[in-house]
Amino acid sequence: MKEQADQRTVLSVSGLNVSFNTLRGEVKAVSDVSFDLRRGEVLALVGESGSGKSVTTRAVMGIVRGNATIKADRMNLAGNDLLTLSEEEKRKLRGRVVSLVFQDALSALNPVLSIGDQLGELYRTHLGVSRKEARERSIELLRSVHIASSERRIDDYPHQFSGGMRQRILIASAIALKPEVLIADEPTTALDVTVQAQILDLLDELREELGMAMLLITHDLGVVARTAERVAVMYAGRLVETGTVDDLFRAPAHPYTAALMASAPRIETVERLEPIKGSPPNLIAPPPGCAFNPRCTHIGDLCTKVRPELVMGADGRARACHYPLLETANVG
């Protein structure tokens, strides 16, 4: 990744908590999550399904619906205090300042509207341009995501495109208004390996061209290694480790991060994969102490008694563990 000249923070989140009231009790989906995202940077949120990644980003965008309760010490987006804005003010920021690429392109696109109508609506609604100008801009937008014969395909419907091309269209709609922050939620899900690489290259190309910051949600460590600069690992709604991609891949500090890496296949090895035993905890009644302790192979006396806080180390990495692997290795 190229070093970014502009290190201005465009998204700052501190003490974010999201819970849902259910018939069985309160589900604490996100607990005390904090992170900063700088202009042009790629930050990956990594973790198993249900770890709180998508809920975190939807809370930032203000699109968590239903019986959710959202609290935070700070949520600032490009100089806008999200905690004080009205719903209408937040709506105006979506697309123009922050945008989201959904993981399922087929369900995200309206099947009864042409691609031109769906893309053109963005320009007409946010910029107030004419239908003709919106169509011209939409054609140019399709060209920017490398869809051939854009002048003809602008009138096609979602089912007439392949999965990879539909994903490109979703990306096009997300970048139409040149947002400062792009949230990509599993953007390569259900795509074959070749198309995945093309989508990741496209996102990186557009990020550099537009100067966007990108928050990448994924459980694919290969995508993280290829795309991101920093990583935030989530487990049971909390951040358990943060650091640069190089540092985390070279020597993970939290046992959960190490377990994720051990369970990922590598082309250069034929060793047996080590899956993470057990299942993620029930967020209505999580285990006492560290939520990962029932599945941890490095459990100690404190792990079942005291919940570890996310602490920044001297190496610039943060970890929420009573017995970090780096310190254990140094002692050994």
Rank of each mutant, 00 (worst) to 15 (best):
E41C: 02
E41N: 00
L45R: 07
V46I: 08
G50E: 10
G50I: 06
T56Y: 09
T57D: 09
G62R: 03
V64C: 13
R65H: 12
G66A: 14
G66I: 04
A68S: 14
I70R: 01
K71E: 15
K71C: 10
D73C: 10
R74N: 12
M75R: 03
N76V: 15
A78D: 15
N80Y: 14
D81T: 05
T84C: 08
L85E: 00
L85K: 02
E87M: 04
E89L: 03
R91V: 05
R94L: 07
G95I: 05
V97R: 06
V98D: 05
V98Y: 02
S99D: 06
L100D: 03
V101S: 09
F102N: 03
D104L: 01
L106F: 09
A108P: 03
A108M: 02
L109Y: 04
L109C: 06
N110D: 15
N110E: 13
P111T: 07
V112R: 06
L113P: 02
S114G: 15
D117R: 14
L119I: 15
G120V: 07
L122H: 01
L122I: 15
Y123C: 05
R124Q: 13
T125E: 13
H126C: 04
L127R: 14
G128A: 08
R137M: 15
R137L: 15
R137T: 11
S138N: 10
S138T: 12
I139D: 09
L141N: 11
L141S: 12
L141V: 12
